[in-house]
Design a protein around this nucleic acid. Structure first.
Lengths: 379, 379
DNA sequence: AGAACTTCCTTCGATATCGAAGTTAAAGCG
DNA sequence: CGCTTTAACTTCGATATCGAAGGAAGTTCT
């Protein structure tokens, strides 16, 4: 667990390892195509990686009309990653192998308002616990990463101006964890991590928007296969102004923000007014499933508002995919309403091959995304 | 004028040439830093390029504390590019050297509604004319490019669904020009070209939005220093819905499109209703300069509407710069109104270092952009 | 079943790139 | 002015990459 240095690989070896770890290549031939290296060079490097015990050959793959490829995998004992997805009330955390596949995942209750030191100490203890109980013996920890339910400045890797995280503003999360783990540390906004994780489930799609509809509304943007951070807050559409019949003031001080109408928190408040008591965002989808009319109507309205914001973004950005995740996305009318808005209003060229679909990668999306980003730092 | 092949350069040589041509590097040392190659390798390749007559040394540059760099330039006789920016009523066309600097630029009246064959034949004749009269003798033509005032499908390089170009739909512009010139041919949307040209004027800024406010409203998007095309129509914000007091139906069939209120064409119509007769979009800025109240008021409203659309995009995309060009941008209240909307409504993290400014690169922006893109195909 | 592809991977000599050490030419300074 | 420092380039042996040719292991066509 010592040594902040990467694995003992040269540049070209690292590129190849990343391609295998990222699931983009499974054979020498694919590596050659994707890396741009000559097939002969790939063979040489792969040979070295096999000898170093970082790669293993696991049988052969499917023929594409000729000789079958010899399938390459990352060695299971090359290392593990410890990753977490900090939420407001819950934390998901787990261990991944260096292919980014989960070895174990847990969800634990946690209160992020307890402040950064308390939460991060607790998190590190939880990691140690997981490593003791679930990591194969002798396999080294190679990196630590966590998602944060608020904006993270990519330059300083500090939390900046979070709305639901008192005490965290400007806290140097990466440094604090770095003091405990002498390893690559990743700190990133949770919607961004989710977007990266989700992108792995859409091969061939280079431009995605990934919505996280939960207590708040988050959005991660993948451009050209890579996370777009902008100045640090890219994808933040929660305070975009929407067209509505009556006016609401948002917690941010502006009026008519999307979040004030279409977030899980807003829906819970609206349902309470209508006499329907809901405690958690996840329960809204259940009410919709039980055909409670107030819930369905509210979700439909939220979908329409989100969809109207998306029309602008679809025309502007022309994504291949809009993946909708988060606990609200389990309510079917949400995506239906989003689709209706977008397809009705957007340019044909922009919607021709646009797919608007539920997120494919489930609850672990953010953890997988953390793994994917960490691999770039580790390999 | 024969030979569709590129210049006789190997891969690494091409990279170096592109860096010099793009104005990013002027010395061997800069080339080494930017290309990632070892200094020794750079020296070898540069030596070859000098011998091949593609590069020339032109004295020495400014010392940065040590020995002065030996300044490198593209050889003036390495070739020329013929580029055009097709508008609805006018065409700008010119010759560029392989550094992308204009040798000569002209504006000629032309009617794009005459149909593609007529216009493109006329354009090619105009190119030949320019080459005869303004190209240094013996310098070969290396590439041809043109901007189109409508959407261009990047896959097929055909015009798709243009609004003001009858007869052009699905016309294979690149193929048609390719039959006349056996050279790399570039065909691209005009706002996209303008964005690329403008981006060269903002060194260090990797994420830009470039607005073209003329008869219509165009927008080009630069992400990570490269043009973002999406599925072909990225940046097209002209048919985004805006919040207004009264409702208008746009030519596209939807109601309340941005273009129906804030485009030059819309302003001319609105001014006519107010009893102010304007013929061309460029005259609106003149009226504003003469403090005609109706014009100022209309432009301010247009700016506010554009700004409101931009708030969504700024939160989402987090650009470094919004550059506003086109004939309307000469009207100062336009940018002032855009700034007011964006700064009032957007997230602090997104506007902290955001610059909203008039385009820097003038009327030739699209031609320069065409040159920049062509260089990638030629070098 | 046999011949003809196709694809995957390896071998080996030719070539390109690297990087450490040296050279050249300037700026900064007492 | 001469000394040190800095940066720009060059030289040259070590190393990495390439690419053509060929072998291995399939599929497809006849």
């Amino acid at each position: 667990m010592s040594g902040k240095e990467r694995l003992p690989v040269t540049g070209a070896q690292g590129d190849l390892l990343r391609l295998v770890a990222g699931g983009q290549a499974e054979s020498r031939a694919e590596l050659a195509r994707l890396s741009g290296l000559a097939a002969s060079s790939v063979s040489l490097r792969v040979e070295e990686l096999l000898e170093a015990g970082l790669l293993v050959e696991t049988g052969s793959g499917v023929s594409r009309g000729g000789r079958r490829p010899r399938r390459l995998r990352l060695a299971p004992n090359a290392g593990v990653l410890a990753v977490a997805d900090l939420g407001v009330h819950h934390v998901r955390l787990g261990l991944l192998d260096l292919s980014g596949h989960p070895l174990t995942v847990q969800e634990r209750a946690a209160d992020i308002t307890a402040g950064p030191e308390t939460v991060l100490d607790w998190l590190a203890d939880a990691f140690d616990d997981l490593l003791d109980t679930h990591a194969p013996p002798g396999v080294p920890l190679r990196g630590v990463g966590t998602g944060i339910p608020g904006p993270v400045d990519p330059a300083t890797r500090r939390v900046v101006g979070p709305s639901r995280m008192p005490g965290w503003n400007n806290f140097p999360v990466a440094e604090y964890l770095g003091a405990r783990y002498d390893l690559p540390i990743l700190v990133e906004n949770d919607a961004n991590l989710m977007a990266i994780g989700e992108a792995r489930s859409w091969p061939g799609c280079d431009n995605l928007m990934v919505l996280k509809t939960g207590t708040g509304i988050g959005c991660g943007v993948i451009v050209n296969g890579r996370l777009h951070r902008g100045r640090g807050a890219a994808g933040d559409i929660s305070h975009v102004r929407v067209r509505t019949d009556f006016s609401k003031v948002c917690a941010c001080g502006h009026s008519d923000c999307l979040e004030a109408y279409a977030s899980g928190a807003a829906l819970i408040a609206a349902l309470a007014e209508a006499g329907v008591s809901v405690e958690r965002t996840g329960d809204i989808a259940r009410l919709v499933g039980d055909a409670v009319p107030e819930a369905t109507s509210q979700v439909r309205t939220a979908g329409r508002l989100i969809g109207e914001v998306l029309t602008v973004l679809v025309n502007f950005f022309n994504p291949d995919v809009i993946a909708v995740g988060g606990s609200l996305s389990a309510a079917e009318p949400l995506i239906a309403a989003i689709r209706a808005s977008v397809y009705e209003r957007c340019l044909p060229l922009a919607t021709r091959d646009l797919e608007i679909a539920p997120a494919r990668s489930g609850k672990e999306a953010a953890l997988l995304g953390a793994g994917t980003l960490l691999l770039d730092a580790v390999l």
